[in-house]
Structure formats: structure tokens, C-alpha cells
Amino acid sequence: MKPLSISLASEMIASVGPLEIRNTMLMAWLVMLTLFLGSFALFTSGYKMIPGRAQAAIELIINGLYDLFASVVQDERLSRKFFPLVSTMLIFIVLGNWMGILPGVGSITIQAMHEGHMEALPLFRSMNADVNMTLSIAIIAMLAVQFYGVFELGIVSYSAKFIVPPWKNPIQTFVGFLELIGELSRIISFTFRLFGNIFAGEVLLIVISYLVPYIAPVPFLGMELFVGLIQGFVFALLTTVFLKIAVTEHEAHHDDESTPSITAPAV
């Protein structure tokens, strides 16, 4: 039996100058290409007042997502602003997860230099089973949260959430400091939640396929489809919630009951 190799890090297949081409990056490009082609095909065929089947399906998805996010944001103007970001997150992550369990991903190998010697490396690897990918989306998400917070509330009002002078309210100073750490920790939780779920799924599929190659992996494939969808929703909805919190006025100096009741769910 061939030895089972599971690598936590994605594998480099080639390099262009300083840029390493990882197998997850190839996968990400494949996902992007799929989305590009799909959107161009839709766009060139033109959006019509009386939609065709494809347009109706896309409208259903986009409108459904919009309503979902808008129900969280509770503000038409802000929803329109946040929508492209969170919706792209969801679509990209879900499609990446689903394409990651297509046959051929992981099984098509290429001979490449790895850790100093030539080795057969998988040409494609599930996009989100790479911390680089999940971390980059998490960074974008949290940068966007800060950006919209400052943009909507103004730098003074927004930073007042984190920096409270100790002579005014020492407890709030401490809470602000915790908030600041919380913002940073969100990047890490975003990153490793998605990475962990998808990587775990990959490992699970590899192990099951290794033990019982036929039939047995099927329910696990189904489960991975579900996990992939859920993780996409979790990522996008959490981002939406954080965005909503960021653009909501901080009212900690009032009574506790009057503070906005939006809190990030612990997922």
C-alpha cells in the first residue's frame, strides 16, 4: 500500500520570479475562471426584463443572497455597499469548496521539487485547504470592516470604540483594549475556522478513500458538499455581522439596555 501523505501546507508546483505557484492557487484560478466565464456569458447574453432560465436562476441566487444579507444589515444603503464583498466571499468560498471535491483534485499529480527532492505532488488541492487563501480572505474581510467603520462613523467616532482614556472610564478603557484584540483575533478565527473545516474534510476523504476506496466515501462526499456550503455562509454572514457592528454607533456610555443588541454569534 502506498504510504499516506497528508501535508498541512499547500505544495509549490512552480515559481514565477518571487511568486510561488501553489496547487491551491491553481485551484483558486480555476474557480475564478469558472466565475469569470459564467459572468461574461451572462453579461454578453444581456440581462433582460423578461429573464431566460439562466438569468432567472442567477437572479434567484443573487436576490436570495441580497435579501439574506439585507436582513442582517437592516439598511438598504449599507446592504448595497456590503453586498459585493460578502456575496463574492460566499460564492467564491462555496464554489472553491465544491470544486475541491471534484474527482481529479488531489489525484492528478505532477513531478515537482518539494523539500529539496523531486516528488509527485497533487496538481490541484482544495482552495480553502490552504491557510494562505483563507487568511487572505479573512484579512480582506477585517480590512473592509475597519474601512467601512471609519468611512461611516468617522475616524474619531470609530476609534472611540477601542480607545477610551482611562481617566474617563477605566472599565471602558479595558473593554476597548479587549475589542482591539478581538478585531485581530477575528482574523485568526476566520482563517482557521474555514481552513480547519475544509482541511479536515480533505483529510477525512483521503483517509476514508484509503481505507475503503469504493462506495464508502460517497456519504462523506455529500457531507463535504454540505460543510462547504455552510462554511461559505458562516464566513459571509459573520463578515456581514462584523460590518454591521462596525458601522453602528458605539453607545456604551448610555444605559446598557440601550446598546445595540447585535452580537457576533459564537460559531
Binding site: 501546507a9 499547500s10 511568486l19 510561488e20 492557487m25 494562505n132 487563501m133 487572505s136 484579512i139 480582506i140
Partner: peptide, 14 residues
């Protein structure tokens, strides 16, 4: 396997 160049590339991609 975190690498800044890869990270940046993915950010740009996204």
C-alpha cells in the same frame, strides 16, 4: 505554508 507573496497574490485574486 504561509508565504507573503502567495498571500498577497490571493488577496489580489479575490
Amino acid at each position: 505554508g504561509i508565504q507573503w507573496s502567495v498571500l498577497l497574490a490571493q488577496i489580489i485574486n479575490f
